[in-house]
């Protein structure tokens, strides 16, 4: 190799690719600030969780889960809240799913694009941002009084349905829009009607994302206190009430937590309330994990 001697070396290779010093510092600094922000948020959350865990673990027991509320902190339980939350969740899901997916399907697949559908869309998007207590007032005036359902389980479920419906519609529309146009074309080219394509191809392909949106909305709904409190939830239900009866009075875990912290005894305010919070958090954690599992399972498939 006698070639290299003639051409002078231009520049050291290790210098050629070095970033300017200013850039590196700016980048490191930005990363540090972002990291700090994340840490602060996590720390606050961790402190909260640890505090609740310390206060509440002692109060957790099978009796606590299976007893109705009592005046005595050591005998009290959140059975009414658990059954109430479960039945609210189920009823809300049953009503939200067809309404939400139906509305999304109509807007995304069938509605003509005109002034009215645009107005409708804007309204749905705005409704998703209305404070939850407003839905409570809606529930009170429409379901409790106007429709005469009273302060019953169905009123609570309808109120929560109204609360999460806009979010579910928006999420379902996103899910439908993410289904490739080509799948619809393929179905139509085989002589399927638009309705057949929607129900047999588009919705099934979008179902995982729709379910994720549904579950996350539901977990928001069952953590809500204000709307159902306004719409007539009670603090404790009599033991002889049937938990699934639509026309009976109802309660839910967050309502009971609210009740516990309002009571004068410190045992209720700290120990019992924290134990109930742990139960509620566990339910929410399960729902969020379910959402993530569904999303991952199907994301891999497609």
């Amino acid at each position: 190799m006698a070639v290299s001697t003639s051409a002078p070396p231009r520049e050291q290779p290790d210098r050629a690719f070095r970033a300017p010093v200013g850039n590196t510092i700016r980048e490191k600094f930005t990363q540090l600030v972002l990291l700090l922000g994340t840490l602060v948020a996590l720390a606050v959350l961790a402190i909260l969780l640890i505090d609740i865990a310390f206060d509440g673990v002692g109060g957790l027991s099978l009796n606590f889960l299976s007893n109705y509320t009592s005046r005595f902190p050591e005998m009290t339980g959140i059975r009414a809240g658990i059954t109430g939350t479960l039945s609210l969740m189920l009823l809300t899901a049953l009503m939200t799913f067809p309404l939400g997916v139906g509305a999304a399907l109509y807007l995304e697949e069938f509605a003509e694009r005109n002034r009215w559908t645009r107005l409708l869309e804007t309204n749905i998007n705005n409704l998703a941002g209305v404070p939850s207590i407003v839905y409570g007032l809606l529930g009170l005036s429409v379901f409790v009084f106007f429709l005469g359902f009273g302060r019953s389980l169905i009123t609570g479920a309808l109120t929560l349905t109204a609360l999460i419906l806009p979010v579910v519609i928006v999420a379902s529309r996103e899910a439908l829009r993410a289904v490739p146009r080509e799948i619809r074309d393929g179905g139509l080219a085989l002589g399927a009607t638009p309705l057949q394509v929607a129900f047999r191809q588009t919705v099934p392909a979008a179902i995982p994302s729709i379910m994720t949106g549904m579950i996350l909305s539901l977990s928001r709904a069952i953590g809500e206190t204000a709307p159902i409190l306004v719409a007539g939830a009670v603090f404790s239900r009599r033991a002889d009430n049937e938990p699934w009866n639509l026309s009976e009075s109802y309660t839910a875990i967050p309502i009971q937590i609210f009740d516990f912290v309002k009571r004068p005894q410190e045992e209720f305010q700290v120990g019992v309330a924290s134990a109930a919070i742990i139960v509620l958090m566990t339910v929410l954690l399960f729902m969020n994990s379910a959402a993530i599992i569904i999303r991952n399972r199907y994301a891999r498939k497609i």
Partner: peptide, 17 residues
């Protein structure tokens, strides 16, 4: 719809369901 059944179509990008 009936026209599309009798006259099939294959697209540029393979589009299996």
């Amino acid at each position: 719809v009936e026209v599309r059944r009798r006259i099939g179509m294959v697209f540029q990008k393979p589009n299996p369901f």
